[in-house]
């Protein structure tokens, strides 16, 4: 499992910019960012190299931030790659609450899919099916380079 930083944001102008500036000033790099929003509020989900520090610095600046366990799975960057992953989960009745993808900056055309699932066994299931489930270390491994 990988720890994602989730931030509750009211929909008001400049709030997302403030969040980004706080992380930037703390020299925290974001690997991926996804905003789920309604008319009145949004939840910002961030994959970063230092989730604990990110949460701390955000809370210090008055943001409501939490760490959420998510599954990061590497998928071949080809048509049907994501479908294979999702079918593996649905065959085991594991529900996906939400998902988003980003392309690995270090890999060879591979993408990473971030999944919020309702079953702690999801990582195991995916590994057994032959998928490469990333640990935090693997996900951020390229940062040094």
């Amino acid at each position: 499992m990988v720890e994602q930083v989730s931030v509750f944001l009211e929909n008001r102008p400049g709030r997302l910019a403030e969040l980004a500036r706080v992380l930037g000033d703390a020299e925290i790099n974001m690997r991926a960012l996804m905003v789920a929003d309604t008319a009145e509020f949004g939840v910002v989900r961030i994959i970063t190299d230092r989730p604990h520090e990110a949460r701390e610095v955000l809370e210090q600046h008055g943001f409501g931030a939490q760490l959420t366990p998510v599954v990061a799975v590497e998928i071949p960057d080809r048509p049907g790659g994501l479908a294979d992953v999702l079918e593996t989960l649905s065959n085991r009745s594991i529900s996906v609450e939400y998902a988003y993808c980003f392309v690995e900056p270090w890999g060879e055309g591979a993408a990473v899919d971030v999944l919020k699932v309702d079953d702690a066994d999801a990582s195991k299931v995916l590994r057994e099916a032959g998928f490469s489930v990333l640990t935090s270390e693997e996900l951020y491994a390229s940062d040094a380079g």
Partner: peptide
């Protein structure tokens, strides 16, 4: 929202 509420999912918030 209470600071310790698991607000990660939009439908929980709704």
């Amino acid at each position: 929202v209470a600071p310790d509420f698991a607000f990660d999912e939009v439908r929980e918030l709704e």
